[in-house]
Every structure is written in structure tokens, then in C-alpha cells.
Nucleic acid binder design. Structure first.
Lengths: 340, 340
DNA sequence: AGAGTCTTCCAAAGCGCTTTGGCTTTCCTG
DNA sequence: CAGGAAAGCCAAAGCGCTTTGGAAGACTCT
């Protein structure tokens, strides 16, 4: 059942039927009802391929997925996707993942824009002066950055959490508890979120006349194993830290294991605060010692990004506005006063 | 730069240019070279929207993503996606995720097929007599099932691992080590993989005149918390098991925590074998007691599924052939002879 | 009553590609 | 050298929708 048949059936032109269906004003309400009705009765669904050829609109949002045998997709992606998908579903949007060589994403961005394959894209895990952001900005496709980049001469729309504030608060609490030597087990230091978190910790320390020893900063891919290794290295130093701020719950698993291996305890020998993106399958309150966290649901962020993308596509949102969400500091058993 | 312009530029018809580019035989090799050359020089890329309207081919594979506020996407999905994406990239395929109400995926399948939105789909986490499999089979779109369904009067193409064999081997090893009371902490018992795993355990026990106590079988969503709860419940029973087979590494985290909470040890009081889908961020050898596992890379499965989808799209693969991959049993420190 | 303005609808021209059917030209073959 | 096959190319008809540029009729206003 296509438009031609439907319009024939109604003794109307394709023009009128099309307009009636798409809510254009220049059609009699009575006629519109007739058309709508017939369309529903015959289960007419406009062919999206035809529609997109005519309009250029695809009803899809895009994400360029870095891949490669040695490239791992962040497990956070799933949760983000849950939120994104949940919103997208209710708005009849699909998500297209375009796999790209991790070292050459530009080609793929250019392709999906040139080919009009999607109406908008989002970018995640941005770095300062991220080339992807500059690229999509010049390419002129609607986009939202999940996270933040920096150092551009233009504004761009993003949704981020207050990473600096979160880690500032976490560090401040630890300092107030008497800790003088903090350590930070961070994610990849080339990404903005990691930079912001480190900045937050440093600022809190500086406010109390303390500093963050460079040997106490680890910047690693967020795996359990790296959490373990970093902790071993930190605690086996001469001036071992008495408190650790950790960028991920998964790494925190490794931290806990290392502490135990060394015959130490949390929070007796070491206080620990980790960032929690809120996974359904791993909860900080279920750690053997319940984990204090800076918490922000990445799933909600996914839904929000989808919402803003939809708004930009439909022209409801225009400005290059950035929004920063506050982060909860949730105190549980893993923090205590500094030992000794 | 579109076909019209290009053909004008070459003083050829659109027909000939199109045929030259798409490798049809009825064009002079000399002409073809000229066309190819000009196309490359001017960076001509056929407009996919136009092409798909004309051919119906989209260059995309589809996945219906169950969503909902209370629906969690399996973290395994990311790893599967890594493999799928890696293959897809090298073959210029995109993946479109169509979010659907978890309770009504049929509508979405029908939509993407009716609209010709994708060339093929894959289905994951199938159940016996899975309606999705029956549906796509009748809809006539190329597809691959990742995992297995059962109880149809037709054959269908799938790629699965030998879940039954894996858990059979795991249980057999435990029995040989003297264990008489095994327990199984399984995934959702409505899914085929869980059924097969249980069957494997039962078969191994039966071969030695043993049975799997119903109270020793847990079937739960695979979270750390559920692993913990299941283990507490199991070990606090009168006839507590001395060995556990566990369907996921994430649940195994909870198992380990529960054992520790109860003041018991692995493998002294309890032997443990878990299934490992091979996550880069959580490795069984890094558990406090290195975990014995049944191992199979879900990432490789993703690549294989993509490969088969591509083959089916291009007509290289036709038969409804199922393939079953063997699973490695990797023995590490978490298993030992039965206590007492 | 004539001019101007809405309202409501339509024919036809795209969108950019593939593919059908046919037309020349060249090359064999007997 | 005639006749048939094969090679190489083209014009034009889709694919199914949106949108432009009217046109016809109804209505208002002077």
C-alpha cells in the first residue's frame, strides 16, 4: 500500500493525502480525517526510503563507533544506550552505529554527513580540543557532546556532569577526615572527564595547603586489573596515600582486591571513594565494605542526550548551550579518619 | 556531485556510468577505467538514499533493542558489539539499533522489515520456541540467531557455543574431585543457554549416579548482587553444596563475596567454576583466588555473526545451518577436592 | 458587480539512483 | 558477402515520497 494507491482509493491527489498525513494546514479538516482514517484502516506507512530521498530526513541518529581488534568498547556504553534507547523508542528514532577505524573516525563522520545517513550525531568520551567536535561543527550536522571538550573558538552543545565538583567534594571530605596524602586512580588522562576530576582533587587539596603528588596520580584504562596494579604501586611506595579517589567502580574492584592482598583494610588503613555511573549489575553498596561514591546515572544522561538530539533535529533547540549536572556524594563505610 | 553530473562530464549516459561503477559486464573495460577514474578524482559517492529506494538494499544490519525503564541491557552486549563492529567496519556495513518496547518487539520487527530498513537482522538471547525467530523466519528477511532456540518445525541459521558441553565438563571435573553436592547459579531459566547449561550439569551428575537438587539451582538475572544472594542461600542450607557452577563472571564476584562473608574459603570449603565470556575489564585469573572457567569469547561470536549476516545478504550463504562452538575449560585455583 | 483574498485541492517536477528494453556498431561465420 | 551474434551504449521508466506553482471555487469588501 503506497501513497499512489491510497490517494487513488480516496479520489484525492497524492499531494493532498501527503499533506493531510503530515499535518499541513492547507487541507480541510474533514478531508484530513477521511485520509487519516483510511490510512489507519489500510495500515498505510510511508516508505522511509522514499521519504528520506525526498526530504533528506532519516529519523535516525548516528554514533561513530571506534573499533579495532585492540579497541575495547567501554562497558558504560551499554548503560548510556539504555537511556538513549528508551527515549528514542518513544519518539520513533533509531540509532545507527557506524563502526570506524579508531584512528580514522573523520572519514566515517564525513561519510555519514555527506550521505545524509542520519539527522544528528552524538559524540562521547571527548578530549580537549577534540577533533570530532570541531569536525561535526563545521560539517553542520546537529549534534550533542556527551561530556565536554575545551579550547574551541566556538560554543557547542553538550551534556556533562560536574566531574570537577564531584571529585572536589570527595577530596574535601577526605581531607576533612584528616587525610593528608591522597591518591587518584583516574581514567585515560587525555579525556576531559579525567582532567576535570584531577583538577577537582587538586583544588580541594590546595585549599588546605596540600598537593597531589604526581606519583599518586594514575591514569589508566578502567579495568579491574588496572585498579589492582595502581593500588599495589601506590601502597607499596614509601609515602603511601591513606585515601584514594577512584574514577570507576570497576577499577574499585581491583583496589579492594589489592588492599586485601596487602593485608590492609578499608577504611582502617585506606579510605576509598569511587565514581559510580550506576550499573544495574554492580552496586557500590554491595562491596564487602560499602563504597562511598560520587554518583551520577549515565543512563539518565543517555536519555537526556537523545532528548536534546530530537529537539535539535526538530529545530526546537538551537543555541549551543552546555549543561552540567551536579553529582551526588554518597558516603558509605569505605571512608574514615586518617590512620595513625 | 551526483550521477547525472558525472555522466555529463564523461559524455556518457547515467546507465553506463552506473553499470561501470557497479561492475556490470556490458561495459567496455576501457570505458570502465575512465569512469572509475573520474569517480575517484571527483570523489563521487552514490547517494545511499537514492540507491536504497531503487534497489531496496541498505547496507545496514539491524538489531531490535528491548528497552524500558526497568529493562537493563546485558553488559555482554558491548563485547559482542565490538566483534560485530570490527567485522562490519571492514565491510562498510552499519548497524541500526531499533529500540522497542521489551514486551512488544514484534511491531518493531515488522516495521523494519516492511520498511526495508535493513538487509538482515540478528537475534540474541533466544528462548525455546522464541517468537522472534519464528517471526523473522516468516517475514523472510535474512537473519542469524546468536544462541539457539528450539522446538520449531523449520531449521534456522544460528551461531552458538556448546553450553551444555561446557557445563557438563565443568560438573564432571567437580565430581571427579569428589564433590557430591553441586549447585548451579544460572542466568534466566527461560533462555536456552541457561537450560542447556543446567542440562549439562545434570547429565554429568547422572553419569555418576548423582542428581542436582532443585534447591541447588538458582536462576537469576546476572548481577553481582544476585550472585551474592544465591550463594548465601545455598551455603546456609542444611545440605550446602561443596561446589558451584556459575553462569557469569559478574555473578561470580558476588559468590566470592558471599563466601568470604560466611568465613569460608575457596577452594577449601567451596569449589567454583564460572563461565567467562572474556571481558577486557574483568578477568578470571585476577580474582583473589584465580577462577576456573568455561571460556568462550563473545566478541569472536559477534564477528562471526556479522560475517554470516554479510554472507547471507550477498547470497553466499543460503542454508539454515547452525554452528556450535566448543568451549574451553580453563582450570585455575578455585577448584579443589571436596572438603571433609 | 468586480476585485481581491482565502481555502482547498491538484498536476507535475523533482530527489538520485538502478534497470529494462532497444538501438548501433563491430565481429564472426559459412 | 549476407546474416546472425555479441559488445557497448543509451533513453526513459521506475522506486515512493515531498513540494512547487498554480487553479478553481467560495467568500469578503468596496
Amino acid at each position: 500500500m503506497n501513497l499512489k494507491q491510497l490517494s487513488h482509493m480516496l479520489s484525492l491527489s497524492q499531494t493532498t493525502v501527503s499533506r493531510a498525513l503530515n499535518g499541513y494546514p492547507e487541507v480541510n479538516e474533514e478531508t484530513r480525517r477521511r485520509v487519516m482514517d483510511a490510512a489507519k484502516r489500510h495500515g498505510y506507512r510511508p516508505n522511509p526510503s522514499a521519504r528520506r530521498l525526498a526530504t533528506g530526513k532519516t529519523g535516525m541518529i548516528g554514533y561513530v563507533l571506534p573499533t579495532g581488534t585492540s579497541v575495547d568498547i567501554d562497558p558504560h556504553f551499554v548503560e548510556f544506550l539504555s537511556g538513549l534507547g528508551d527515549y528514542a523508542r518513544s519518539h520513533e528514532l533509531d540509532l545507527v552505529l557506524s563502526p570506524a577505524d579508531a584512528d580514522d573516525q573523520e572519514t566515517t563522520y564525513r561519510r555519514i554527513v555527506a550521505n545524509r545517513q542520519v539527522d544528528a550525531v552524538y559524540i562521547s568520551s571527548p578530549r580537549p580540543a577534540d577533533r570530532r567536535v570541531a569536525l561535526v561543527n563545521t560539517l553542520g550536522i546537529p549534534f550533542i557532546v556527551h561530556g565536554r571538550s575545551e579550547g574551541f573558538d566556538f560554543d557547542y552543545p553538550f551534556t556533562d556532569i560536574d566531574n570537577e565538583g564531584a571529585f572536589h567534594e570527595a577530596a574535601r571530605l577526605l581531607v576533612q577526615l584528616g587525610h593528608r596524602r591522597l591518591a587518584l586512580i583516574n581514567g585515560d588522562h587525555r579525556e576531559t572527564f579525567a582532567i576535570h576530576r584531577e583538577r577537582g582533587v587538586r583544588r580541594a587539596l590546595a585549599a588546605n595547603g596540600l598537593t597531589l603528588d604526581d606519583r599518586h596520580v594514575c591514569s589508566l584504562v578502567m579495568t579491574e586489573e588496572n585498579g589492582y596494579r595502581a593500588t599495589r604501586r601506590l601502597l607499596e611506595q614509601s609515602d603511601a596515600p591513606t585515601a584514594i579517589a577512584c574514577s570507576s567502580l570497576i577499577m574499585a574492584l581491583g583496589v579492594v582486591r589489592a588492599v586485601r592482598d596487602l593485608g590492609l583494610t578499608i577504611p582502617g588503613d585506606l579510605s576509598l571513594i569511587a565514581h559510580d555511573d550506576v550499573f544495574p549489575w554492580l552496586k557500590p553498596e554491595n562491596f564487602s565494605v560499602p563504597l562511598s561514591t560520587t554518583r551520577s546515572s549515565i543512563r539518565l544522561a543517555g536519555a537526556r542526550v537523545a532528548e536534546r538530539l530530537a529537539a535539535r533535529i526538530s529545530g526546537l533547540e538551537e543555541e549551543a548551550r552546555g549543561e552540567v549536572w551536579p553529582v551526588d556524594l554518597v558516603v558509605r563505610g569505605s571512608v574514615a579518619g586518617a590512620p595513625g
